[in-house]
C-alpha cells in the first residue's frame, strides 16, 4: 500500500515540476518585449521623400479618436517613393512594418496602419490621408 502511495506521490511531484517550469512568453514574434502597457496611439508622423528630406508642407494632424492621420505634402511630391515615419506610444509597434521605400500614391484608397499596444492586446487602425498642397 505504501508502495502505491509513493508512486502516486512521485507522479504528482513530477507533474507539478513540469507545470511550474512552463515559462510565460515575454517576447512577441518579432522578439520585442511584451509589457503591461495598454496605451495605443500615434504621437507623431513624418513623411520623407526619396532624398530623405521632409515632403510635408505643414505638421501632420493626428486624431487619436477618429484614428486618422491627415498630412499635406508639397507640390510635386513623388508619393510612389516615400518613407513614412511613425512615433508611437511606449512599447507599441506598427503593423505592417515600414521596411523601406513605400508607395502611398493611391490617394483614393488611403493606407491603413495598425498600432499594437505594449501588452499586444489592443490594436487600433489609423488611416493615413494624404493630400497635395
Amino acid at each position: 500500500m505504501a508502495k502505491y502511495f509513493k508512486i502516486t506521490l512521485s507522479i504528482l511531484m513530477i507533474s507539478a515540476i513540469i507545470i511550474s517550469c512552463k515559462k510565460d512568453s515575454v517576447v512577441d514574434e518579432d522578439g520585442l518585449l511584451i509589457t503591461f502597457r495598454q496605451e495605443c496611439f500615434v504621437s507623431n508622423f513624418e513623411l520623407l521623400g526619396a532624398d530623405f528630406v521632409s515632403v510635408r508642407s505643414k505638421t501632420a494632424v493626428i486624431d487619436t479618436v477618429a484614428q486618422t492621420i491627415d498630412v499635406e505634402v508639397l507640390f510635386g511630391t513623388d508619393l510612389k517613393n516615400v518613407y513614412p515615419q511613425f512615433t508611437l506610444a511606449t512599447d507599441c509597434k506598427l503593423d505592417p512594418k515600414v521596411t523601406g521605400r513605400t508607395d502611398l500614391s493611391n490617394l483614393a484608397s488611403p493606407k491603413v496602419y495598425t498600432v499594437v499596444s505594449g501588452n499586444r492586446k489592443i490594436r487600433k487602425d489609423y488611416k493615413l490621408n494624404i493630400k497635395f498642397q
Binding site: 526619396a50 532624398d51 508639397l74 507640390f75 510635386g76 513623388d78 510612389k80 517613393n81 508607395d103
Partner: peptide
C-alpha cells in the same frame, strides 16, 4: 525602379 521623370525644388549642393 519606379522613379519619377521630374525633380523639382533643387537647391545648391543637391
Amino acid at each position: 525602379v519606379d522613379m519619377p521623370n521630374y525633380a523639382i525644388g533643387l537647391r545648391a549642393e543637391a
